[in-house]
């Protein structure tokens, strides 16, 4: 018995939950590993394409393009900051790893949106579905990230794709919650007006609810991106590529400099992504208010 788990008082009535848990995951692995492996395929395709594109793009072209996007959505200050941040990342020698991290974040956020927005819509439509979903989301959100990693490795093996899957599980809940919230917050009088002019439920969703919920959904996407970024780094523990690698390696070999620049690049990337998605949400809501 593991020394961590003993306590004289409770030993006689101890529940072997750790055993059950291990058994369950083993059983899943034995019987369903091929299914889980097949689930990797679409994520692998998305990730491979995004990564290939970002690695192919010359750094200068990337910096110009992201600068223009930043200027468009967030104004010149943030555009300048964005371009400077990526230049610094290149100058400290982490361009390639940063692009891998970015592609992992983008791939996982893309999958999160594909899964999360429809689930949010269903949750907003049905109180029962929402009630059933809630504990699942609570578990997903509060389980420490490291706990995901073991079952993910067993079911999906190690590597970048497995890292993205762990990231998706971790980053999905706020998007579902905020989509649900945004849709429910649409004022009843606006919906009633749309109904009075003969709109079908579908039209109300597409023409009224979703556009009005968009700022909240964008806030959800912002949260998802931030969570994804933090998880992507942890995912280096299970062999995922990207900026987590110098951090983990620096930790293992006590190479403070390596871990330090990895941290700097992550922070810069986080600030850029946060400002850009926040500006996107604010732009919509100020147009919309």
């Amino acid at each position: 018995m593991n020394a961590l788990l003993t306590d004289a008082l409770f030993d006689p009535i101890r529940i072997p939950l750790d055993q059950w848990f291990a058994n369950f995951i083993n059983w899943l692995t034995l019987n369903y590993r091929p299914t889980f492996q097949a689930m990797k395929v679409p994520i692998e395709v998305i990730l491979a394409n995004v990564d290939a594109f970002l690695q192919w793009l010359p750094p200068l072209a990337f910096i110009v393009i992201i600068g223009l996007i930043a200027y468009r959505v967030a104004g010149w200050r943030i555009a300048v900051f964005t371009m400077a941040a990526f230049t610094v990342i290149g100058m400290i020698g982490l361009w390639g790893l940063t692009m891998t991290t970015l592609s992992m974040v983008l791939a996982s956020v893309l999958v999160c949106v594909i899964l999360g927005v429809p689930l949010g819509i269903l949750a907003a439509r049905s109180d029962r579905f929402r009630g059933a979903l809630r504990p699942v989301l609570d578990v997903m959100q509060t389980t420490p990230a490291f706990v995901y990693l073991v079952p993910v490795v067993m079911l999906f093996s190690i590597g970048t794709v497995a890292g993205v899957i762990a990231t998706i599980i971790f980053a999905l809940p706020p998007l579902i919650r905020l989509t649900d919230l945004g849709l429910r917050q649409v004022p009843a009088d606006v919906i009633e007006a749309a109904e009075a002019f003969g709109s079908s439920e579908r039209e109300i969703l597409v023409k009224v609810r979703l556009p009005l919920a968009l700022p909240t959904v964008m806030a959800g996407i912002n949260q998802t991106i931030m969570l994804a970024l933090s998880m992507v780094v942890i995912a280096a523990l299970i062999g995922a590529g990207g900026l987590g690698r110098p951090v983990v390696e620096g930790l293992n070999a006590l190479r403070i400099g390596l871990a330090g620049i990895g941290g700097v690049a992550i922070v810069l990337l986080a600030i850029v992504l946060d400002r850009l998605t926040q500006a996107l949400g604010e732009e919509r809501s100020s147009n919309g208010a």
């Binding site: 009633e192 007006a193 002019f197 556009p211 009005l212 147009n287």
Partner: peptide, 29 residues
């Protein structure tokens, strides 16, 4: 639906306008 689109229109106390649309697109709703 026909009744609501073609024969009965409605005006609301709290206007019920769509804030993400222009005035014109609201009127054309």
């Amino acid at each position: 639906r026909d009744l609501r689109t073609q024969h009965l229109s409605m005006v609301f106390q709290r206007f019920g306008l769509l804030p993400h649309r222009s005035v014109r697109d609201n009127v054309a709703y």
